[in-house]
């Protein structure tokens, strides 16, 4: 009976410890590979501003704590949503503040909403998928973007 209890505990402990183990074999994803930019501005219909996008990419790449970045450029506001590396989640607010400051300094004429909230990331991803599949018109996408930005500002 004692032996059985011992092995049960050993099994549970092993399960616990292996569950906490990090997967070191997974390839590290660079921000460059994971960044997706969606341009909903009227100017983008005439031809997107590559220089502006490159600047944006450079600023975001300077933050090694974030990955899976989605940038949605609207006519009035630009939404930037991302995931934060697990151990850096304690610094989430600081990362958000720093990124917003850098972006505002680089593009003083634009307005930015920066969010690491999973819901905002999820909705941005859904919006991107719908746009890729052609299920959403540019106008509706712009309205949806406004809704997502509004959602990111909700506190309660």
């Amino acid at each position: 009976m004692k032996k059985r209890t011992f092995f049960t505990w050993l099994f549970l402990l092993t399960l616990l410890l292996t569950g906490c183990q990090m997967d070191h074999t997974a390839p590290s994803s660079s921000t460059d590979e994971q960044m997706q930019i969606i341009d909903l501005t009227d100017a983008s219909e005439k031809g997107s501003d590559r220089n502006c996008e490159r600047n944006l990419e450079e600023i975001i790449q300077k933050a090694p704590e974030i990955y899976d970045v989605i940038v949605i450029k609207g006519n009035e506001e630009t939404l930037i949503t991302y995931k934060v590396k697990h151990m850096q989640r304690f610094r989430m607010k600081k990362i958000e503040k720093e990124l917003k400051e850098q972006l505002t300094a680089a593009f003083p004429e634009s307005s930015f909403t920066v969010s690491s909230d999973f819901k905002i990331y999820l909705e941005s991803n859904r919006l991107k998928r719908k746009l890729d599949q052609g299920d959403l018109s540019r106008e509706k996408a712009e309205n949806r973007l406004k809704e997502i930005i509004q959602l990111s500002k909700e506190k309660t």
Binding site: D117, F118, K119, I120, L151, E154, K155, T156
Partner: peptide, 9 residues
Amino acid sequence: DFTEQTSGN
């Protein structure tokens, strides 16, 4: 329509 912040309640 709950965010990480509002889903707590």
